[in-house]
């Protein structure tokens, strides 16, 4: 056991991430054995489809959680971005390239608002983002007249945007291009987290804000950046969700953020700040999307997904807490 613990590979991955990774593999195998139809290529594509919007949200919120904060607004901001952008495309005839930019920018805008509320006005992150969660939920519905919005279909001249996340070849083969984007985004943001000034100061202020400030660091600025990253990725998640699922319901999206937060935490990021792992977050996200996709295959309704995610979350975090407690 001691030997195992000191294995350099295990050390590099980290215990919690290792547990999460094993859980991920175990889950996939279990579903695959219980129903052979699960272990097919098309189901794999479904798992990927479910992972995009959660994954983008999770990458973004990982930065906020690393500061020791929380962003509850990402789920409803996702929906608002999709609703408003889709509305502009379908009802107002905006060109799709502009719509994509607007979709992401709405997320960025809410990120800026959250950042200012937390850093400049000093609101607790929970309260500030609870407020913007309600705001975004309401405003999205108001703009679309409380109507659901369905984005343009793939057969539309402007439907090219759909192949950002999934390409259907003439032979009917599905290529999950979104997976490449998600992984590319994860790699990029992992680099930002670990190799840039922004990431360094976000982690540092999450660990000890006052000491970071007394080192002459403009902590407000980096706090705001964290929320802007979170908001922007909520906007990207809005695009991903709209592309995959086409239809957005006004008032929806509340609760999506919890899937993202669960993914981040299962991956080993500490809610008290100072630690943020994008690689772990990705593992956590795929655990959640496998559960989402896989449970119906074994005859369990989607409600069970909540139960299963809850259990995985508690077990994964407990493993970490227990390890830390033993260390002390």
């Amino acid at each position: 056991m001691e030997k195992l613990k000191n294995n350099p590979i295990i050390k590099a991955i980290g215990t919690q991430r290792l547990v999460a990774l094993l859980a991920l593999i175990l889950l996939y195998l279990t579903f695959g054995i219980m129903n052979p139809r699960f272990a097919t290529y098309s189901t794999m594509v479904n798992i990927f489809d479910a992972s995009y919007y959660i994954g983008f949200m999770a990458i973004g919120i990982c930065f906020v959680i690393a500061t020791g904060g929380i962003d509850l607004s990402i789920g409803t901001v996702l929906t608002m971005s999709g609703l408003v952008a889709g509305f502009l495309s379908v009802n107002m005839g905006f060109p799709i390239w502009l719509v994509i930019i607007i979709c992401i920018s709405i997320g960025t805008l809410f990120g800026v608002i959250n950042g200012l509320l937390v850093a400049k006005l000093g609101l607790p992150p929970f309260i500030a983002t609870l407020g913007t969660m309600m705001l975004s939920k309401g405003i999205g519905s108001i703009i679309t007249g409380a109507q659901s919005v369905t984005w343009k279909s793939g057969s539309d001249p402007e439907g090219w945007y759909r192949s950002i996340f999934k390409i259907k070849t003439e032979g009917g083969l599905l290529i999950p291009t979104g997976f490449l984007f998600l992984i590319a985004a994860a790699v990029l943001m992992a680099v930002v987290m670990n190799k840039t000034k922004t990431g360094r100061y976000i982690l540092s202020l999450g660990s000890n804000k006052e000491a970071t400030r007394l080192s002459g660091v403009n902590v407000d600025k980096y706090l705001i950046i964290a929320y802007v990253i979170s908001g922007t990725f909520a906007g990207i998640a809005g695009l991903a969700y709209s592309t995959i699922y086409s239809t957005l319901l006004p008032g929806g999206g509340a609760g999506f953020e919890m899937d993202a937060i669960a993914g981040v935490v299962i991956g080993g990021t500490s809610m008290s700040g100072g630690i943020g792992t994008i690689a772990g977050t990705m593992i956590g996200v795929f655990i959640i999307s496998i559960l989402k996709t896989g449970l119906p295959f074994v005859g369990l309704q989607t409600h069970y997904q909540q139960v299963a995610t809850g259990l995985v979350l508690i077990v994964a975090v407990f493993a970490d807490v227990y390890r830390n407690r033993k260390k002390n």
Partner: peptide
């Protein structure tokens, strides 16, 4: 420990904290 250092970070990271540029 409270105001001078980010104790959960490494010696190197703390050393360069004010002069990262």
């Amino acid at each position: 420990k409270r105001f001078g250092l980010v104790v959960a970070k490494s010696v190197a990271e703390n050393s360069t904290m004010s002069a990262l540029s």
